[in-house]
Amino acid sequence: MMATPSPHGFARNVGVPLAPDWFEQVAVNTPAAERRAESLAGRRSLKKEWQAAWLVNAIRCMDLTTLAGDDTDDRVARLCAKARSPLAPHILVGLGLGSVQTGAVCVYPTLVAAAVRALAGSGVPVASVATGFPAGLMPLDLRLAEIRYAVDQGAAEIDIVISRALVLRGDWAALYDEIAAMRAACGAAHMKAILATGDLATLRNVYKASMVAMQAGADFIKTSTGKEAVNATLPVSLVMLRALRDYGTRTGFKVGFKPAGGMKTAKDALAWQVLMREELGRDWLSPDLFRLGASSMLGDIERQLEHFVTGRYASSTRHALA
């Protein structure tokens, strides 16, 4: 019997005063990080029931996302229907599962209301991007107002974007203050800090920005908006997980991780989960500490699961569109 997993009951990260000495001297060797990330897929293999379970888990941890200029209320409603029932009934039966839902639905602020309506009673939270997504180049007061708007509309999770310029300039105090203000604006809503790692250029910058975001109180750190030239990659994720581990060692807080953008296949879903398991452990395979920001990945997962259940290769035309 499986349902939406219960929260693990750990304390929410409240942040700490800015402490640059936690990250300013950080050493990240890029070729070594790439080597680790590259070899990981070959070090762990998931077959049969195990692969199926891990793919179902990916769905549980998925922020099913639409962030397009042509999004409409109806389009969002359709996505929400898929979030409620991401797998066709016969697949669920074949897997021996009762129900499965995605971790959340992620939309623009003006579509939060539509999503909340469509998900009413499902328990699936609505996440909203905010703070001038994706570039974040808006006055701070407008960005904070946007957070409050989205929360007001019913968003339970806010995916904020950080000011990349502050990272590139090394202005950690300003970055910290902005993120802390955003965290305050989120209130009870959980805040995911999007670092837009594709814009940060170096893995050291990724580590530093991760640490500042956590010190400023982020509940999750997230790789990308999906709009940068390079989005979630395994080496970037590896470095963020190590920052997250180091923050946890120092403070005791567990912070979540969300890779987003560019992950399209069931294989990607497994690769990132293996990374979480190997670098952080079992706790980071539950939706309160791990989310996959993806749109098209679900379709591939559903096809793989159908194959597992039926033994026949699947056609997406038989699966409900997101």
Partner: peptide, 17 residues
């Protein structure tokens, strides 16, 4: 025979010979 539900609890790797 281990079930998908059980694996979802442990999130173990399982055999891959």
């Amino acid at each position: 025979m281990v079930t998908v539900t059980e694996i979802l609890e442990t999130m173990e790797y399982g055999p891959a010979p």
